[in-house]
Simulated assay, not measured.
Amino acid sequence: MDLSDPLVYGVPCFIAFIILELTYSKVNGDHHIYHWKDLFASGFMGVGSAILGSLLKVVFSIALFTAVYELCNPENAAGIRENLLGYESFGYAWYVWLLCMLGDDFTYYWFHRANHEIRILWAAHIVHHSSDNFNLGTAIRNGWFTLIYKPLFYMWMPALGFPPEMVLVCLGIEALWQFQLHSTYVPKLGIFERFINTHTMHQVHHARNIEYMDKNHGGILNIFDRLFGTWKPLNDEIDIEYGVTHPPNSYNPMVILTHEFSDIWKDVKSAKKFSHALMYIFGPPGWSPDGSTLSVRQQQRLLRKGMEIKAPVQAS
């Protein structure tokens, strides 16, 4: 079945909506929403991500998903699905599409959450959070290294029987929804806030306020954040500060893309134990053996106890 990638049609819309929001913000006097150097840096990384994504997609998504799909149920021999589960494939019925989107959303939640809780993955994902601005331009400010390992999180879907092209379409739909969330001009959406990941919830996700850190990882739905304890609504009494607590302090795209990897390398070289070196790589961002820097959970634990947070932080 030949299915088109929704992002093929989405990219021109991304550009159009960024220009529209930029124009509206300037006409409306909201000059703090967009800054030119920041927008150009985001645009450079967005273009690079689109080009690399197209090239790597053949190897890291299409080939991988197809190989896994066929491996679990090869054409000329009884496979794992047929032997253990009693079917060859889920097919393309409308309800299978809904199940695939749900599976995609579930996977996106854990992929996104892992990017915030494992430092080596955070080094790739921090690019998206590195801007102090929250706008549609920030939506395309994507890290390039996430393109390599993201498909690994989704391998279970073609293995279970979702056709590879269906999984890729659902990934594209998820990306379209994620793009439009990056705007402050959309108010709370009433009853939809109960199950949909909305614009105000994504503002929380991009905040560097301690109480907001590592919240609202969901894609289209917020049910997984609610189920697994990472959901937090926007509090109108809290002034949001966007960005990260350990910013790159540069508009150079190469610095933005690599600065956290450099910091990991410095920490690993300074580690006195092998276990500490591993924690600097695979532990939560901000972790330190002596408490000189704190992880998000450590900061939030102190905040709940009403204690002052004196140690510098390196997470978002």
Score class of each variant (00 low, 15 high):
residue 28 N to W: 01
residue 29 G to N: 01
residue 29 G to P: 02
residue 29 G to Q: 00
residue 30 D to L: 05
residue 30 D to S: 02
residue 30 D to Q: 10
residue 31 H to Y: 09
residue 31 H to L: 12
residue 31 H to E: 01
residue 31 H to T: 09
residue 31 H to P: 00
residue 31 H to A: 04
residue 32 H to Y: 15
residue 32 H to W: 15
residue 32 H to E: 11
residue 32 H to N: 08
residue 32 H to D: 12
residue 33 I to N: 13
residue 33 I to K: 04
residue 33 I to G: 12
residue 34 Y to P: 01
residue 34 Y to V: 01
residue 34 Y to A: 08
residue 34 Y to K: 08
residue 34 Y to E: 09
residue 34 Y to S: 05
residue 34 Y to G: 02
residue 35 H to F: 14
residue 35 H to P: 02
residue 35 H to E: 14
residue 36 W to G: 01
residue 36 W to F: 13
residue 36 W to V: 12
residue 36 W to A: 14
residue 37 K to C: 00
residue 37 K to W: 06
residue 37 K to D: 03
residue 37 K to G: 01
residue 38 D to M: 10
residue 38 D to K: 05
residue 38 D to H: 02
residue 38 D to I: 05
residue 38 D to C: 04
residue 39 L to W: 15
residue 39 L to C: 07
residue 39 L to D: 00
residue 39 L to Y: 09
residue 39 L to S: 04
residue 40 F to P: 02
residue 40 F to G: 00
residue 40 F to E: 08
residue 40 F to C: 10
residue 41 A to W: 12
residue 41 A to E: 09
residue 41 A to N: 13
residue 42 S to G: 11
residue 42 S to D: 11
residue 42 S to Y: 12
residue 42 S to R: 13
residue 42 S to V: 13
residue 43 G to P: 01
residue 43 G to V: 02
residue 43 G to R: 13
residue 43 G to S: 06
residue 43 G to F: 10
residue 43 G to Q: 08
residue 43 G to T: 06
residue 43 G to I: 06
residue 44 F to P: 04
residue 44 F to L: 06
residue 45 M to R: 00
residue 45 M to W: 03
residue 45 M to H: 00
residue 45 M to P: 06
residue 46 G to T: 06
residue 46 G to D: 00
residue 47 V to Q: 05
residue 47 V to E: 07
residue 47 V to N: 05
residue 47 V to S: 11
residue 48 G to W: 01
residue 49 S to F: 15
residue 49 S to W: 15
residue 49 S to H: 08
residue 50 A to F: 08
residue 50 A to Q: 15
residue 50 A to E: 03
residue 50 A to S: 09
residue 51 I to M: 14
residue 51 I to R: 06
residue 51 I to L: 15
residue 51 I to P: 10
residue 51 I to W: 08
residue 51 I to H: 07
residue 51 I to G: 11
residue 51 I to K: 03
residue 52 L to E: 03
residue 52 L to S: 04
residue 52 L to Y: 12
residue 53 G to S: 01
residue 53 G to C: 11
residue 53 G to D: 14
residue 53 G to M: 10
residue 53 G to V: 08
residue 54 S to Q: 15
residue 54 S to M: 14
residue 54 S to F: 09
residue 54 S to N: 14
residue 54 S to C: 07
residue 55 L to W: 11
residue 55 L to E: 01
residue 55 L to G: 02
residue 55 L to R: 12
residue 55 L to T: 05
residue 56 L to C: 02
residue 56 L to E: 00
residue 56 L to H: 09
residue 57 K to R: 10
residue 57 K to D: 11
residue 57 K to Q: 14
residue 57 K to M: 10
residue 57 K to F: 11
residue 58 V to T: 05
residue 58 V to D: 02
residue 58 V to P: 01
residue 58 V to Y: 05
residue 58 V to R: 10
residue 58 V to Q: 02
residue 59 V to Q: 04
residue 59 V to A: 03
residue 59 V to C: 06
residue 60 F to V: 08
residue 60 F to W: 02
residue 60 F to T: 07
residue 60 F to K: 12
residue 60 F to E: 03
residue 60 F to A: 03
residue 60 F to P: 14
residue 62 I to E: 04
residue 62 I to H: 00
residue 62 I to V: 15
residue 63 A to I: 14
residue 64 L to M: 08
residue 64 L to Q: 00
residue 64 L to I: 03
residue 64 L to V: 13
residue 65 F to R: 02
residue 65 F to H: 01
residue 65 F to Q: 06
residue 65 F to Y: 13
residue 66 T to H: 07
